[in-house]
Simulated assay, not measured.
Amino acid sequence: MNPYVHRTLVMQLQAGATDRFPVLAHLSYDADDPFAVTVVFSHDGRVLARWRLDREMLQDGLRRPVGTGDVRFRPVSTGAWAELRMEFFGAARPDGGRHHAVVFAWAPAVEAFLRRTHDVVAPGQERFRVDGFLAEVIAEAERGGG
């Protein structure tokens, strides 16, 4: 079985008080990093942001509000249209606030992506490869990066 899952979705970005506008969201999952989903947001060929998200938190966000830090998810329904509201907080701005963006995704598309990741590594079957992690940390420290 292929240890990777990738899907590109059109999502709606809302930054500040602006109207929503479409962005591409490239979602990827790698069985070697079984707890995470990486999402890269792009527009007009430019990468806007890259986030590593907790797969379980993303799944939970489709059902209920989750997150209290830099990333927050919650379901939003407008009639028959079910969305996942993803809120991202970034670096500090000069005025003392923080960069902030909200992205809306069609919830059934996110669910379909997550189901495919569950086919690769079922929830509860994730394993953290401690040996590989420790080897990376030691190699980085030996290079003087840690």
Rank of each mutant, 00 (worst) to 15 (best):
W106A: 12
T78M: 10
S77N: 11
R115S: 15
V120D: 04
R63M: 02
H43S: 12
Q125T: 06
V130D: 06
G90M: 13
F133N: 04
A105Q: 11
A80F: 08
R46N: 02
D131T: 14
D119C: 13
V103M: 12
H118R: 12
M57E: 03
V121D: 00
R72M: 10
H43G: 03
A82F: 09
T38W: 04
V39C: 07
D70H: 07
H43Y: 08
L58I: 04
T117V: 14
A122F: 02
V110W: 08
T68I: 11
V121P: 00
T78H: 06
A135D: 14
V47G: 04
S77Q: 10
P75H: 03
F88Y: 15
V37W: 00
P94H: 14
T38R: 09
F89V: 15
L114P: 04
G97M: 06
R64P: 01
V130T: 13
P65N: 05
V130A: 13
G96Y: 07
R63G: 04
V102I: 15
L62C: 08
W106L: 13
V76Y: 07
G124F: 02
W81F: 13
E83G: 10
H43L: 05
V76N: 02
A82I: 07
A135L: 06
S42A: 11
G124V: 08
V103Y: 09
T78R: 11
V71T: 06
L62T: 03
V71Q: 02
D119T: 14
E126I: 07
V110R: 07
R72Q: 11
A112S: 13
R64V: 01
S77H: 10
D54R: 01
G124R: 04
V121L: 02
A105S: 14
F113Q: 03
R46W: 05
D54P: 06
G124A: 03
R74F: 07
A91I: 09
L58W: 04
V37A: 01
F104R: 06
L84M: 06
A109K: 15
F73E: 07
V66T: 08
M86I: 04
F128L: 12
R115W: 11
L53Q: 05
R63N: 03
S42C: 08
V47E: 15
A122V: 08
D131W: 03
F104Q: 05
A112V: 01
V120M: 06
P75L: 13
A105G: 15
V130P: 00
D119L: 15
D60M: 04
G69Q: 09
R64W: 02
P65H: 01
F104V: 05
F41R: 03
V66Y: 02
T78P: 01
L62R: 00
S42D: 04
V121A: 01
F89Y: 11
V40W: 00
